[in-house]
Design a binder for these strands. Structure first.
Lengths: 226, 226
DNA sequence: CCCCGTTGTAATACATCTGTCACCAACGTC
DNA sequence: GACGTTGGTGACAGATGTATTACAACGGGG
């Protein structure tokens, strides 16, 4: 079992992340400031660290740098969390030694996927990327390509995420709030009707395969064959 | 149905907020000072608290801190209201444990959206996977699909909820008022005979399986095999 | 700095659902 | 068996939820 250390001062966010990672079967350690974070990293040797860029007292960047200086902790991959406003250069993050980079607000799905992806890189045998297939529809996660009988379909970011959210929970109904949370992020502020619009766009682009997306009046949407 | 506690000393603003949240279908509690606010939070356990930063006697910040100290109330998300002039640092608000932050003057739309957004965070990601089976009848909650021997049955929202209300309390008689409460919501006002109509529709759609719904003359309805 | 693709929101159009009512059937009591 | 009460049923207008379209704001790339 992989252990993940979360260094995040906002308890709610930390708890949320912890909850979802635990659900995925990871062992989770949580601390709320940089100093404890460094100590935990040293003593516990987690397999991955999720680090908030903005921490009280000690900046996340400092923590990252310090971790990368010590031989013992340098090998541990780090995923950085940043608020959108902070807008640090992606390159700067990587230069400091972060292995990946998630901008708040992020969906739980996104984070979990990144965690998995980062951990996979350090695994001996590299499991090939997943491909989801539903009737005439194919989604190649690794190549980020969606195909129907009519060939390749060009989707925008939102459309792709929305399609994925539906396809990954094949048959399951998801209401608009759940879709908002999964596609737009947990703290998105906006109209639930926005989902409708994007569903329409998605259906149009998918052509015949658009029929796979069913409306469940009063509840939400689901993807299903037939 | 979600309950929201408003702690705001200016009656006009409190009423305005309450009005719009009620329109959205929330149950609203209103108090006008911090002490009552704390008490209500403890006794009523609302799903969300909207807290004015400036309160007479006790500062909103104190209320927030106190709420976050008690285990029982710590989990309740808080949206802070602040006047523009107050210009407290956003970070300070979050550090005190506020989950979101709205600056007066705010539009009703904005507030409602934020409320929804915050509540969304605490909602479960997916509908639980549960299948109810009664004789030839099967209700798949996750997929939102009802099946009988004749195959899949298309039900409307009300019909589906009504069926669920009966199936979840298998064998127990429910009178029309109870059904109204369970299916239509606690504050629904309307004719109890409406239930009859929907029972009829449901029986028709279910075909043979419609016989599972028994009329108990003078009392109500129940679902039962045989 | 402009252009164009993307995205959120609002307005409108559309389809379906839903509550009520009127009337009829079933039931049970006397 | 007649009568009062309770439940079943079908019709219909208004309510509700969704699809579609249009548009403006935004942001990235050239």
């Amino acid at each position: 079992m992989k252990a993940i250390l979360i260094i995040e001062d906002e308890h709610d966010i930390a708890d949320l992340i912890a909850f979802h990672l635990k659900k995925e079967g990871y062992r989770v350690l949580t601390v709320h400031d940089g100093t404890s974070g460094l100590e935990m990293a040293r003593t516990q040797s987690p397999d991955l660290i999720i680090l908030d860029l903005m921490l009280p007292g000690m900046m996340g960047t400092d923590v990252c740098r310090t971790l990368k200086q010590s031989v013992k902790t340098a090998v541990i991959p780090i995923i950085m969390l940043t608020a959108k406003g902070e807008e640090i250069d992606r390159v700067v993050g990587f230069e400091m030694g972060a292995d990946d980079y998630v901008v708040k607000p992020f969906s739980n799905r996104e984070l979990v996927l990144r965690v998995r992806s980062v951990l996979r890189r350090s695994e001996p045998e590299y499991i090939e990327e997943k491909i989801i297939s539903v009737g005439p529809l194919t989604i190649d996660l690794g190549r980020h390509v969606v195909t129907t009988r009519d060939g390749e379909i060009a989707l925008t970011t939102i459309e792709y995420k929305l399609l994925l959210a539906l396809a990954e929970r094949l048959g399951r109904v998801q209401n608009r709030d759940q879709l908002l949370k999964n596609v737009w992020g947990y703290n998105y502020v906006g109209d639930t009707r926005t989902v409708d619009t994007h569903i329409t766009r998605l259906r149009t682009k998918l052509g015949d395969a658009g029929d796979l997306i069913k409306t469940v009046r009063g509840f939400g949407y689901k993807m299903e064959e037939g």
